[in-house]
Design a protein around this nucleic acid. Structure first.
Length: 409
DNA sequence: CGTCCACAGGAATGACGGGCGG
DNA sequence: CCGCCCGTCATTCCTGTGGACG
């Protein structure tokens, strides 16, 4: 009893009390917007210039920002929005207002408009209005205030994929209905192909100005991490090389700063869990492993049924198939063993492509001349992980356990 | 140099389920 | 609540193709 109390007390003390390594863990979260964004000064300046007409009560050009995940798009926009708002408040300027919408969260037309409304301070019931009515109320409100409204649509590709570009079209056209106010749009996306799917009129109007954010390289990532680490960690609690390790690991993953920050935070958490007083490269390596395994396991677990079967087949082949045909053969055997009707080779071909896009396997078309053209397929993760995840699958578990003993040949 | 392998991958079509407007 | 429509998954049928082999 005493022992248990001591253990519990220890945990509570650690949860409540000062961490040995962290000073402010929040600073490593990807929502945190620091006061300095290393290697994005140029973009901050350009965006600020583009939006500067706001201070004169004029409408800025619509801006479309494109860049891969973790390249600082959202951070830069939020930073500029924050600075503009602060300055305006201090100087008593009320010529403009911002609305920020993350279209991944607000994924219907209604919710987007609702979020814009609440950001602007319009009183709107949560439900009960039609989208058209909401649109009208917003327009009337904006028009009666003589303000320029800048609407930031983050991850706008999500909205368009879900409900189409109808709302975008109306937003870009709203100025024609307004007599004394203006609405401008800042769109953020990490999907270039999405732009092509837009209505040409929306495309040209939304993309009046385009900003492209390149990925960070390892050196830049290290700078970012140093900046954040100074806020997040206690002095001297990071060992030499930890930041460099996290930076170079993330640089290999298309320079995603979010990944780099996650890695560093997890390394700190692992160190803390162990009661270490300093975070070592060893901790970072374990963090990386944990992230990789978790991500892979998560993807495998949430795969559709036949996707799992294909992956299982590939794992049973040692993680490599020299042709789609041989993979398909093994897949048929697996289906047979499970008494499942196999899909056609055509469909399996598509499933392989889908798995490729998810990053759990790699496929490349090769031509063997006289011996035909096919695709080489190799597993992107450790076959052992696939086996392990699938043996705890409700439908496949028993079968996979049998496989481990017998194997497929 | 043409052939022909072993598929890739596009198009048309069907089965199914779920959301939405009336 | 019902029917309708749309998106997703899957099949069928098809045309296209890089390069070793004869």
């Amino acid at each position: 009893m005493l022992l248990a109390d001591d253990a519990v007390a220890e945990v509570i003390k650690r949860a409540l009390g000062e961490s040995r390594v962290f000073r402010n863990r929040e600073a490593l979260s990807c929502d945190y917007i620091p006061n300095k964004l290393p290697h994005r000064e140029e973009y901050i300046k350009r965006l600020a210039e583009l939006l500067s007409p706001l201070f004169r009560g004029e409408k800025p050009s619509n801006v479309l920002i494109y860049g891969l995940t973790g390249t600082g798009k959202t951070a830069v926009v939020k930073y500029v929005v924050r600075r503009f708002t602060e300055y305006a408040k201090k100087a008593g300027i009320d010529t403009f207002k911002f609305a920020y919408v993350n279209c991944r969260n607000e994924d219907t037309n209604y919710r987007v408009l609702l979020k814009i409304g609440t950001d602007l301070g319009v009183r709107i019931p949560f439900t009960g209005l039609s989208v058209a009515e909401l649109h009208n109320r917003l327009r009337d409100y904006v028009d009666s205030r003589r303000v320029v409204v800048s609407v930031v649509l983050d991850e706008v590709d999500f909205l368009v994929k879900k409900v189409g570009d109808d709302l975008l079209y109306r937003l870009t056209r709203i100025n024609e209905e307004l007599s004394q106010s203006n609405v401008s749009i800042v769109g953020i996306t990490n999907d270039v192909k999405f732009i092509e799917t837009l209505d040409p009129r929306v495309k040209s109007s939304l993309g009046e100005v385009e900003l492209v954010f390149p990925p960070y390289d390892a050196i830049q990532l290290a700078d970012i991490l140093r900046e954040r680490a100074a806020l997040a960690f206690r002095e001297g609690s990071l060992e030499e090389g930890v930041i460099e390790y996290c930076a170079s690991a993330a640089a290999k993953e298309h320079g995603d700063a979010r990944r780099a920050l996650d890695l560093l935070r997890l390394a700190g958490e692992i160190a803390e869990r162990e009661g270490a007083s300093r975070v070592s490269v060893e901790h970072a390596k374990r963090a990386r492993e944990e992230i990789e395994v978790n991500a892979a396991a998560e993807v495998v677990r949430t795969l559709p049924h036949h996707g799992k079967l294909v992956l299982l087949s590939l794992a049973a082949m040692g993680g490599f198939a020299e042709s789609t045909g041989s993979l398909y053969l093994v897949y048929r055997r697996v289906c047979e063993g499970l008494m499942i009707e196999p899909l056609t080779q055509r469909r399996i071909s598509d499933i392989v492509s889908e798995l490729d896009m998810l990053g759990v396997l790699m496929s490349r078309v090769v031509s063997r001349g006289r011996y035909g053209k096919t695709r080489e397929v190799s597993l992107g993760v450790d076959p052992a992980i696939v086996i392990k995840v699938l043996s705890s699958d409700t439908k496949l578990g028993e079968y996979v356990k049998l496989l481990k003993v017998g194997g497929i040949r």
